[in-house]
Design a protein around this nucleic acid. Structure first.
Lengths: 233, 233
DNA sequence: GATAGGGAATTGTTGAACAATCCTGCAATA
DNA sequence: TATTGCAGGATTGTTCAACAATTCCCTATC
């Protein structure tokens, strides 16, 4: 094995031993709590309380806050503090516009996509079906989101993948404003499978058409529920 | 004027008087310097030096650094510091993949786009033409980037607009690795005009076809130059 | 009931301090 | 000569304490 070979191999592994700062760890933790819904939208995150609870300094915590504000999971009001974001109806519409464009675009140019990427899609759908069979509705939701991420992954762009991940995190936050996201996913399981098969068989335009239908339906259904919920509150 | 009218108006102005933190101001300044090329890719940004130069504390500066790392303009190596990013050829490829998908997707669904958005496109092209006529090549580049942002704006999504802005900032950084980005823009002025007219006349699919050609050409040209440049260095 | 005022609490920012880590140069070794 | 080992100095990571600025909240006043 020549020098260039094994150094290149090591360089590829570098990411593994990449130590991460306290601020990033804090951000990871908070992000998880937020998208899980453990931190209710609208709640204020006091710097002092959070710093004490997590046993980090205020400065470190503020670094973490900034990251999450950048990801739109928190909002920062100057001299008032940071709050878990409450997505508006406009936000939900914008999220769907974004998702639709990314997913449709990715599928439409998936002609030469690697088999691995298509396998990932299939796997995500299968996971959703299994979770549904076992009545694990929360997991059905996660699998559905994962499915849509794998669709965008067809574009083969690390940046778009990251954008998509953030959009889904934000969407998850939006779901928490509503009561029962369960019924939003269930009817789509079959459609997901259908889309997957169409992609696998190379019928991309048909897949895109189905996908567009999906977004039409899901978006209006979600927005209706959202408006209803916001009116109540 | 009713109450709801002027309160809404004030709410719209809120962003204007929105005081911004020191960290954000520092980030704005650094961002400008980076995409302008005043801070050469690869240079390390010492915390102490930068803090002294900008007359802010190290903590504030670190908050600013985190923002720019998140935007991919800086890279952060643990215990080593932050550096102005040096985009790789893979990065450039990824940037073009992302841009292409966003722009093509946005144009393709621009059927019901507001006239205002189309006017913005026209304006950007006109500005580019004017700058070229006056030999202001740097401004030609800026106008070209602005043109492409206005294309994505057809999608009508605030989030995608922001994503696009960041992609362009990063691309700008990539240009600085090369010697003369001038000749990359000049040949495309006519094509931009053509695409704009096609969009304005509603011939969206023709516009998409032209756009796709543009990306094919620009991408390969840029990547070639990039590889050449990296080989030299 | 609305408003004004003042004190308490919170955020914004700084500066200093210390531990952990990295970098540099030089000596020692093969 | 080329590599390794080892100080030490410099830089980063993180915490802490302090203070100014701002907001929040309660109470007195009209």
């Amino acid at each position: 094995m020549t020098s260039t070979q094994w150094t290149a191999q090591l360089a590829a592994d570098r990411a593994l031993l990449d130590r991460t700062s306290a601020a990033e760890q804090v951000a990871d933790l908070l992000r998880l709590r937020i998208i899980e819904g453990r931190l209710e939208p609208g709640t204020q995150l006091s710097e002092k309380d959070a710093a004490d609870a997590l046993a980090v300094s205020r400065n470190t915590l503020r670094e973490a806050f900034r990251l999450l504000v950048h990801e739109r999971l928190l909002v920062h009001e100057f001299n008032r503090g940071v709050f878990v974001r409450i997505p508006s109806v406009d936000d939900v519409l914008d999220l769907y516009r974004s998702r639709r464009l990314l997913a449709v675009g990715a599928v439409r140019q998936a002609a030469g996509a690697e088999r691995e990427l298509i396998d990932d899609i299939d796997q995500a759908v299968t996971e959703g079906e299994r979770a549904a069979g076992e009545q694990r509705w929360k997991d059905v939701g996660s699998a559905n989101m994962h499915f849509h991420r794998t669709l965008v992954a067809l574009a083969g762009s690390a940046r778009l993948n990251e954008v998509m991940s953030q959009l889904m995190a934000e969407l998850r936050l939006a779901f928490h404003v509503m009561e029962h996201p369960r019924e939003f996913y269930e009817p789509y399981l079959g459609l997901n499978r259908e889309i997957t098969d169409l992609i696998a068989s190379g019928a991309l335009e048909s897949a895109v058409a189905r996908l567009d239908d999906y977004f039409d339906k899901a978006e209006s259904q979600l927005v209706d529920a959202y408006k209803r919920r916001m009116r109540e509150a």
